[in-house]
Design a protein around this nucleic acid. Structure first.
Length: 678
RNA sequence: GGUCCCGUAGUUCAAUGGAUAGAAUAGAAGUUUCCUAAACUUUAGAUGUGAGUUCGAUUCUCGCCGGGACCA
């Protein structure tokens, strides 16, 4: 199993902790169980009541950890189940005996909450009174803040997206962006103050490559002159560079294989000699894997010795020296890229509170290196390079400054980590970065710890899995990268086609239609990328992603649209319901699907807490889907407009209203809008 | 060579150590005089493998097999 790099929320109370504090408080106040359900989940209430009852019955202390509470399986009678097995040892009684005593105690002590119980094979099934459910519904059906927590005074920074400026955004970035944005929103509703940040890698050899190719081949082409989106234009020249590099290196590789090494000297000459000798030996053994590896190494040497690569390297040096014409070109091309990114961010509804540029932060690590040397956390090798020894922690030695005095990524990252804490006084720093950086982030945190940074434990790497295609992995060299802009356009276009086929919104204006296609198309894409647990590698299947049936955003959106349709038709009745400040008269007799709806709705706050504790938006996708599915059955079976009685109608209108609010809140956390009609 | 992650229906995903492992898709069969059929109902189908811990394991531990990532 995956272990988090650090315990979640270490050093600060998480939601569960807060709940238990609240619980203790309420216990001390002796508040009758029935009157605080507005701020406690039913599971928490049962936990508390069971704990108290057990202590009373058996004259010894119990805690909520001594037993488990599950939702009762549909094939048994009851709503929630207490699992008795774990109590057997301590009490030296049979599960059924404990269950019987506990069941009697609960139903007699809390008759307004527990109406019935039964015991099957050591499982105590409790039936919660209909009055509990209807009261909960009446209190919350029009509460737009349902599930939202009070501010807790904690500040969290979530860093995500973090693109390079040499290529447009792709599918992998989308998973990153949606995850980061959604986690930030989930933290907010759970009471955290959140700063969304982005680290732009605007400096380095990659951008120099685009610049070289642009200068050589573009004839001054700009986004304006070509009509090409800025990030794509710059990306095109990056590809152009790579093609030229490939052509040039191929010539060199051919020469090398002919044993013509006149272009090389010194260490590289030696290395190539060795490689060629190894290759002839291996050719006889026929170890295909090793042969490929040797060919790769030869190609790598060749790539590094091409004319065009030399130009790129020179440009990086010129950039570092601040050569005016290089800086000017760099600024110009980066600005094109930023314009392009902004367009995409705007389209998908993403935003940042703070943007860091690597060109500003890449020198931040210098002081850290000196500090590390002073503290003897780092050491210097004979060649002048500076390292940290992490072998005691089961890792390797890691370089923190090259022999030429230039910094490496990890050092810059440490510098920025410190700066984030100093600038914003944050309690936790979350990095949404792919799992290929697991090692890097582990090292980062370890170094921070060794440097004695007080907040080192509160760095959290939200590591997510790669997005693969049904045909395999995305590889830029093979041109199988799925471009974000193209994908968005495609999803929206598919939505349009489908909507036109169904023909339900023919009266919409062109602007309304455009909005609707965006809401559904973008929603489908976000939902599809968020519905898988973050750390898992996921497969992107173009057909599935556009599929609007089943576990998808359009399914949930459709449910919402149907509800809105009901509420439009029943507007007068719903208004009357809202105006009526008296508690609605409850029927005390809920039908199975009515109850199932309320039980589902009751779980929303718990889902929000779980999503927050796990930094996992898929908890919300699962929740809203389940809720929608249950609602669709409910809708199919029970008429709202033509309910059996006036009280039934009121009850159902409440269910409908609360479902709409809950779906909307849940989807909002993922940046997914819900349409009034579709 | 070392470290880490992942193996669940044909496919894509669920399941705080709990009852007969849930969904969705694709397959088969149904439901429109009635609140939006982008829906609903029925049906068939899965824990890679071998041990261990436990009253009880998809979940925890160890070995193996398979897929992936990173470090050197």
């Amino acid at each position: 199993m995956h272990r988090p790099l650090i315990p979640h929320h270490s050093g600060q109370p998480g939601p569960k902790h807060r709940v238990s504090v609240l619980l203790r408080l309420l216990q001390q106040l002796h508040v009758p169980s029935f009157h605080y359900f507005c701020c406690m989940s039913i599971v928490n209430i049962i936990q508390k009541n069971v704990t108290e009852s057990l202590s009373d019955l058996f004259n010894q202390p119990f805690s909520e950890k001594d037993f488990q509470i599950n939702q009762t399986k549909p094939e048994f009678e009851g709503d929630y189940t207490v699992v008795m097995f774990s109590l057997v040892k301590a009490l030296k009684l049979s599960p059924d005996a404990i269950g019987n005593q506990l069941g009697e105690k609960l139903t007699s002590s809390y008759p307004d909450l527990f109406t019935k119980f039964n015991i099957i094979k050591g499982f105590l099934n409790l039936t919660i009174s209909d009055v509990y459910w209807t009261t909960l519904l009446t209190k919350n059906y029009n509460n737009n803040c349902y599930g939202r927590k009070e501010m807790n005074g904690k500040k969290v920074m979530v860093e995500y997206s973090s693109p390079n400026t040499n290529k447009p955004l792709h599918l992998g970035h989308l998973r990153n962006i949606f995850l980061g944005w959604s986690v930030a929103e989930i933290l907010k509703v759970n009471g955290y103050e959140v700063i969304k940040s982005c680290m732009v890698n605007d400096r380095g050899i990659h951008i120099c490559k685009s610049m070289i190719a642009w200068r050589k081949f573009a004839n001054g082409a700009t986004p304006q002159s070509t009509g090409i989106k800025g990030d794509h234009l710059v990306g095109d020249y990056y590809v152009r560079f790579e093609n030229e590099l490939k052509a040039q290196s191929q010539i060199l590789v051919n020469k090398i294989k002919m044993a013509d090494l006149c272009d090389f000297s010194g260490a590289e000459l030696e290395k190539l000699d060795k490689l060629l000798i190894a290759l002839t030996k291996l050719d006889e053994i026929k170890d295909a894997e090793k042969i490929t590896k040797l060919h790769d190494e030869i190609r790598e040497v060749a790539r590094n010795n091409t004319q065009i690569m030399a130009e790129a390297k020179q440009m990086l040096l010129d950039w570092e020296e601040g050569k005016p014409e290089v800086i000017e070109l760099w600024k110009k091309m980066n600005s094109w890229v930023y314009d392009g990114f902004d367009t995409t961010y705007k389209r998908i509804g993403s935003d940042f509170d703070k943007i860091y540029y690597e060109s500003d932060t890449y020198l931040l690590g210098k002081d850290i290196v000196q500090q590390g040397l002073d503290n003897k956390v780092f050491f210097q090798k004979e060649d002048g390079s500076i390292w940290i020894d992490l072998t005691a922690e089961g890792l390797d030695e890691k370089i923190v400054q090259r022999k030429d005095g230039t910094s490496v990524y990890i050092t810059n990252d440490i510098g920025l980590a410190v700066q984030k804490y100093e600038q914003y006084k944050i309690d936790q720093s979350i990095y949404v970065i792919g799992n290929e950086q697991n090692y890097h982030m582990k090292v980062l945190q370890l170094i921070c710890k060794k440097m004695g940074m007080p907040n080192a434990d509160n760095i959290f790497h939200l590591s997510y899995g790669m997005v693969e295609l049904t045909t395999g992995k995305m590889k830029s060299r093979e041109g199988t990268v799925v471009d974000a802009d193209e994908l968005i356009d495609e999803m929206v276009a598919t939505t349009q086609k489908l909507t036109e086929e169904l023909g339900k919104v023919k009266d919409f204006s062109p602007a309304e239609l455009k909005d609707l296609y965006d809401i559904i198309g973008l929603g489908a894409m976000k939902f599809y990328l968020l519905r898988v647990e973050p750390k898992k590698t996921m497969v992107f299947n173009p057909e599935d992603s556009i599929d609007i049936h089943g576990f998808s955003a359009p399914f949930v959106q459709y449910t919402y649209a149907r509800i809105r349709s009901i509420l439009r038709k029943e507007a007068a009745n719903f208004e009357a319901l809202l105006a009526n400040t008296n508690e609605t008269e409850t029927t005390g007799n809920l039908l199975p699907l009515e109850k199932e709806m309320i039980v589902n709705l009751e779980q929303f706050p718990t889902a929000l807490e779980q999503a927050c504790a796990e930094f996992n938006p898929s908890v919300i996708t699962n929740y809203v889907f389940d809720l929608s599915k249950t609602f669709n059955s409910f809708y199919d079976q029970h008429s709202i407009a033509k309910a059996e009685s006036e009280t039934k109608k009121q009850l159902r209108l409440q269910i409908v209203g609360m479902t709409a609010n809950t779906i909307k809140s849940g989807m909002q956390l993922m940046g997914i809008m819900v349409p009034e009609r579709m």
